[in-house]
Nucleic acid binder design. Structure first.
Lengths: 283, 283
DNA sequence: CAGTTAGTGAAGCAATTCTAAACTATTCTG
DNA sequence: CAGAATAGTTTAGAATTGCTTCACTAACTG
């Protein structure tokens, strides 16, 4: 068992180092910016806590006795360490260093927030930023487990322990192999959609049902690239965020919209770097 | 210029390490011996001073976030250093380590306090004890300049900045080449005495004058060995502390006494080791 | 000797840090 | 699922710490 450490404070050690450097205690006090009395009392207290006499009296001056050398060495070392820590804290606080794990759905990463990400990377070169692109569900799992600090996902999920905040809404549109859509909703389809379980898939199906269109599914994938190819091969029509439709199709027929939200672990302390990215994402 | 260090205390760092070791904060608080409330508040304060969020909330527990690893490392290191310092302080305080420079006149070192010195050396094997044997005047110079921590010298000197304390008195006696002394003091002498400037020499001369004996000096030396030899060679009589007379002479005729005093630098902090030796010297 | 300088001690005040107790939220348990 | 137990926080109040100011002592300086 440790025999109860003396409760020394950085400040007291700082006094000691100052006194060892400056010609007089008064100068030391002035440099630190406290009254001579405070310095005197502080050093007395330090001496008392360590329990070993450290100062001699030389005329009216006080001198550090050589015996106290180990204490001075200790003080210097601890102050150096603390100074390093303060630097680290400063860098972390300003988001200039540290680690930040971000997740985004593909539309966010490659579509809406590409520029924001690039800019953020440029602004924080020392920050170790890892970006994970995956469907909302997976990202939310990782937010929940603490593997991600921040994620941009499709809104509408409810997940305990995860806090969300709306970022933007974007339109979902129907894209067909043929130019133009039948006037009669019942003639729409069949469909090539995002995979079962996807929130965007659910939004699309719901919209189609509301319009009275059939919801026959002939193929599914989570990769918009795959969906587009299917449409080109005339397997069926699809519902995609317009940013992901690509230039080969027409403007598409908007039938719904989805919300992109910023997700963070609930109760997690706000990481400064995460907060800075969040600000950037909100524009 | 350093950007003002956060005033962290050992105690706060200790909280952090405890929390990282124990399964719950309550356990950590119990181990340290403080209320859970104090721990909670202390860690909040630490977090605030460092300025970087360090804890997450996991259900009702709080966990150290990986980001705070550098702080924990710092805490461990500073605590280890402080623990070393505490050990050093403990050893120094109990006189088990450190340095002690002692001066003694020969009669004290070889006569009265030989056993005390041997015992003290045995009791404090780790203590670096240096013993300097020299006449009182020299020793007092060195006490004054700080080269010695402690000295046993002949009393009667007054030296500013040096504090003295009586240890013992010892008799000074006349020793002659012949057995027995003349009844008539005027027939005493001639003398072989300690060198001019010696305090013991002054005491002896004064005593002889008081008795009405002549004080013709035919030889002088500060080495009692030399004085004894002179007496054996019948150069003259001498006045010596009885401990230094040796067995070859009779008991001697006591004519005065001198005091041995413990001398220390005035205003010097009391070195624990010095204090322990002082206690031993006082018996 | 008067004046200045270095450091200390006392009083008062503000900030810190503790305990105790009430409180919130979460988890366990029958 | 209700109720108890648990983990941590908050609040109020007391104790401690640490600072400033001011008076003071001792030691240099001219």
């Amino acid at each position: 068992m440790t025999p109860a450490l003396p409760d020394l404070s950085i400040r007291q050690l700082d006094y000691l180092v100052a006194v060892s450097t400056e010609p007089s205690w008064a100068d030391a006090a002035a440099r630190i910016g406290v009254s001579p009395s405070a310095l005197s009392q502080g050093l007395s207290e330090l001496e008392r806590r360590i329990g070993v006499p450290m100062f001699d009296r030389e005329g009216r001056r006080r001198t550090l006795r050589p015996t106290a050398e180990p204490v001075l060495a200790h003080a210097r070392q601890v102050i150096a360490l603390t100074s390093d820590l303060a630097d680290w804290a400063e860098r972390t606080r300003t988001g200039r260093a540290g680690e930040l794990r971000v997740g985004m759905i593909d539309a966010a990463a490659v579509g809406h927030f590409t520029d924001v990400l690039r800019q953020f990377r440029d602004d924080h070169p020392e920050l170790h930023l890892t970006l994970r692109v995956a469907p909302s569900g997976e990202l939310l799992d990782e937010i929940e487990s603490g593997d991600l600090d921040l994620a941009v996902v499709v809104g509408g999920h409810t997940r305990r322990g995860v806090h969300t905040e709306s970022l933007m809404t974007e339109p979902l549109a129907v894209f067909t192999p043929t130019r133009g859509l039948p006037r009669d909703f019942a003639a729409w389809g069949p469909w090539v959609l995002f995979a079962q379980g996807s929130r965007t898939r659910a939004i699309a199906e719901e919209a189609l049902q509301r319009l009275g269109a059939p919801t026959t599914i002939v193929a599914e994938s989570n990769q918009p690239e795959v969906l587009r190819t299917m449409v080109e091969l005339r397997v069926g029509s699809t519902v995609l965020p317009v940013v992901q439709a690509g230039p080969d199709f027409g403007p598409g027929r908007v039938i719904a919209e989805r919300t992109l939200v910023l997700a963070r672990r609930d109760g997690a302390a706000v990481d400064p770097a995460a907060e800075m990215l969040a600000v950037a994402l909100r524009n």
